[in-house]
Amino acid sequence: MIEVTNYRDNPLIDPHLEIWEWQISVYLFLGGLVAGLMILNGLWRIRDREHETKAITNSAVLWAPVLISLGMFCLWLDLVNKLNVYRFYMTFQIKSPMSWGSWILFLVYPAQILAVAVAKGSDVFGGVLKGLNPLLQILKSITNGREKQIAWLNVVLGVMLGIYTGILLSATAARPLWNTALLGPLFLVSGLSTATAWNMLSRPTKIEHSSLAKWDFSLIITEMFLLLLILIGFLSGTEGHQSAGMLLLGGGFTAVFWIFVIILGLLFPLWLELREMRGHSTPAWVAPALVLLGGLALRFVMVQAGQVSHLPDTELLFGAVGH
């Protein structure tokens, strides 16, 4: 028998951490989604497939700067001392994933604006944003002939952004649920999958929709494989990792993880996309909407459950044992 009574009761710390709420989950989700949009846009351009596309290389990419701004706004909302936000850009801390992230976010903006500039069509913006088109024409004249370089820049920065959203959590050894090297790749693949879903909802061409469905099918399979590896890693890991894994396999987060992430977010859209590939007709918006819901749920579960997971109170004995 072992009974521990801790008389500390600090707000947001005890009985377990509650420091990061919906703002961080939404920020990580939007970061992954934008990373995916940048990568998809770049890859389609590199492969010279613009003629087939409407959403990937044209309409969806316009959302990237908007979505990342929304994500950064969420991150800002989470800061306790909001006026000190400029401090992120007064230094570069090489060992801090959050410092890397701040500077990556700083760099993705110009890359995204360049990607918008090379989007096809002379008048990309409509409605109230029409006034931006002349500015876009100037950018277009500068970027003319440099489409491939811009595409590569977006792919590289997109991969960095997508992986960073996972490393932000995984570099935290004190929280075993986050402390897996596969979290970066998982969030990158999930980000690509949600970006594919976003494109599928951005009125793609028929050829494009079928390419996106196939692409998303592979991404969902990869994501499930990574999740399986992560769970195997937890169960075969240290005591802390085992109890972290049990949060998703019988513990407090089991229902939400299996229902929203695995069944509704992965298995159901996978089945719908498989049906679509076999020629059955399904409402085109259902699978992508579920993928987006699943991506958001994954971030919510990981951020919240990770704060509950902790290292066990193992103690090292040394010196003259036996006194």
């Binding site: 710390i13 420091i19 990061w20 800061l79 936000v85 959050m98 050894a173 004190a174 704060q307």
Partner: peptide
């Protein structure tokens, strides 16, 4: 005065020794 209150240090501490002071750090 440099702290933004991002709480990364709180998450990183295995002893949960830190907290957010209501003054914002």
């Amino acid at each position: 005065e440099k702290c933004t209150g991002c709480k990364a240090c709180i998450a990183a501490c295995p002893y949960d020794a830190r907290f957010i002071n209501p003054a914002g750090f």
